[in-house]
Amino acid sequence: MKRNAIAFWGFALLFLAAILLSAQFVANEYWFFAGYVILQFIVLSVAWSILGGYAGYVNFGTSAFFGVGVYTAVFLVSAIGAPLALQIAVAAIVGAVMGFAVGLLTLRMQGIFFSIATIAVTIVVETTVTNWRSLGGAAGIQIQRPPVTAPFHSYVQMLVFVQALLVVLSVAISRYIQNSWIGRGLQALRDDELAAECTGVPTLRLKMTACVISGALMCAAGAPGAMYLQYADPASAFNLNYSVSVLAMALIGGTAHWIGPVIGAILLGVTQQLLTVTISSEVNVLVLGVMLVLFVVGAPEGIIGLFRKGRRSEGKA
């Protein structure tokens, strides 16, 4: 256990240092633009998996939380010119509150009803923002980036580093949950909610906790997106594609372990970047859909499930 923790934090520091160093040595800005998107998807799918994976509640509301994160930042910038750190912090708080509200409304529902309800939440929130004149309405809103500070050469480089910090934070939280009694409780209620209750697991409270943490992280991941694009409009910020991409990444990676969504997000994120550049964004959505269906049908426990199966058939339990 102890050694694992040292290895984990050592790796996390190494990862952050590598991102910082790359800002000094990599000249081509494209890598930062692409890297940002991949890191953002890692945060989103790790966050999704806390409720969707550990607890088995398939949340289609990722885009709602993400979009609210984007628009919280937009609002703070246009209203008081808030700095990036404040944007993210406030977005996390808004996400937690929203997670609590959505959880209260939907977490008593089972299975597909919960999923449908989360789609509904997304559309209702999107429509509200679309009709919110001061946030630009349907046409969207432009925002200005402030000048960048050392050691970064461009604002996007800094955003990449910030998103990398969020990756470390979300993975650390997810890892903590998985190894703690919270994770065991979520796993139990995922397997059988009534049996979990009758074994002493406070199922509603655990689900709410998962929903709040998941929502806070998703909103936080969305906040820097406003500065990344310097522009926000409801149709893209709340696009259902985020929900399905993130869900696909988590399920393809595997949700039984925190590393699963990380693997899935890197794999699909890189593939998407390559396809968008080389072919078209439509084909990249097609590949996403096909991979989702193939994995759900053929490898229900995702990539980490395939690995485990391989190990088990070699004789290790």
Partner: peptide, 24 residues
């Protein structure tokens, strides 16, 4: 086991594929 969770993801994936094929 898990029919609900994976079933939803399955049909959503199918919906997505249909959408993109129609666009293409």
């Amino acid at each position: 086991t898990d029919a609900a969770v994976r079933g939803i993801a399955f049909f959503f994936g199918i919906a997505f594929i249909i959408e993109v094929l129609l666009i293409l």
